[in-house]
């Protein structure tokens, strides 16, 4: 009969299943990463103890007996990230505001690709640039014993995370309806007041998402901090002390760690902590942006 089901339907269902399974690859990898980190990281928690590992003040993984306190590394990450945040929020949000609010069409057409190019520069190039140009410059300028310190790291890292912040914030700003601005201007506010009191609050959650994602990027960045922050695993007292953030510790020490040894597990434990931190950041960013989209009536 001319309407009945074709033979080809089975084949098409197979395709559908292949696609469906591929679609879950990301989930598979995410779960795989989690499991890997737990399996390889947990032994050191058992050996050293949860509290001593997280808050131990000494990181001497190759000494005998070794010390596995990752607090100095955490502090390294915190200092560098906070510093980077200052740089990338000021410059990133500032640039986004400039591009969206002040730049004309022509300027915007040039500036946006520029920001993208900044994003495309590999982190190793940032690291190299920081190491051979910025660090010596800062050392001379401020008369420091070394230019390789948290300050330089923050600066470079901030520039690196800037495109992330800038483009997401710029997106958020461009979603603010024109009518908001017009209403405010009609009430006699000038452009600056309109921007500060109307536009920025309206794009607020988008800008926060941008900042959180920028922060997540800074926390997870490896090569730049590895090359620029000086690498001393001690708790820093000022921005001009060398530090050793978590990512660079893993990158620098994995090569020398004996597979399956305590040091090896400790590095995975650091990876696990990093993973959890960025995971939380992402969940927060996602939650904010979903609420924001709902508010604006945009789809999921």
């Amino acid at each position: 009969m001319k309407f009945t089901i074709r033979a080809g339907v089975v084949k098409e269902n197979i395709y559908k299943w292949v696609f469906a399974v591929s679609a879950f690859a990301s989930l598979l990898f995410l779960v795989g990463i989690t499991i890997t980190l737990f399996i390889e990281g947990l032994p050191i928690f058992k050996e050293v103890g949860f509290f001593d590992l997280l808050f131990g003040k000494l990181w001497y993984p190759t000494y005998d007996p070794a010390d596995f306190g990752i607090f100095p590394l955490i502090m390294g990450t915190v200092w560098v990230t906070v510093g980077a945040l200052v740089v990338c929020v000021i410059l990133g949000v500032g640039s986004a505001l400039y591009i969206n609010e002040l730049a004309g069409k022509k300027q915007r057409a040039i500036l946006k690709p520029m920001i993208e190019i900044l994003a495309a520069i590999p982190s190793i190039v940032y690291g190299f640039f920081g190491m051979v140009i910025v660090a010596p410059f800062i050392q001379n300028l401020l008369g420091l014993p070394t230019g390789l310190c948290a300050f330089t790291g923050s600066l470079i890292l901030g520039i690196m995370a800037l495109p992330t912040v800038c483009s997401i914030a710029e997106d958020a700003l461009s979603f603010v309806p024109k009518s908001f601005r017009e209403a405010s201007l009609a009430l006699g506010a000038n452009r600056w007041q309109t921007m500060v009191r109307v536009v920025i609050p309206a794009a607020g959650s988008g800008i926060s998402t941008a900042i959180i994602l920028g922060m997540s990027r800074a926390v997870g960045e490896t090569m730049t901090v590895l090359m620029v922050t000086g690498g001393a695993a001690v708790i820093p007292h000022s921005f001009f002390d060398p530090v050793r953030p978590m990512t660079s510790t893993i990158a620098a020490e994995m090569g020398e760690a004996v597979m399956g040894g305590a040091h090896y597990h400790a590095l995975f434990a650091i990876g696990l902590i990093l993973f959890l931190i960025t995971f939380i950041f992402n969940v927060i960013a996602e939650t904010i942006s979903r609420k924001y989209r709902l508010k604006l009536g945009l789809s999921g």
Partner: peptide, 14 residues
Amino acid sequence: NIDINGKNVDVVKI
């Protein structure tokens, strides 16, 4: 005279 939403009907052929 055939129900196009019927069970054995192939939408592609319709």
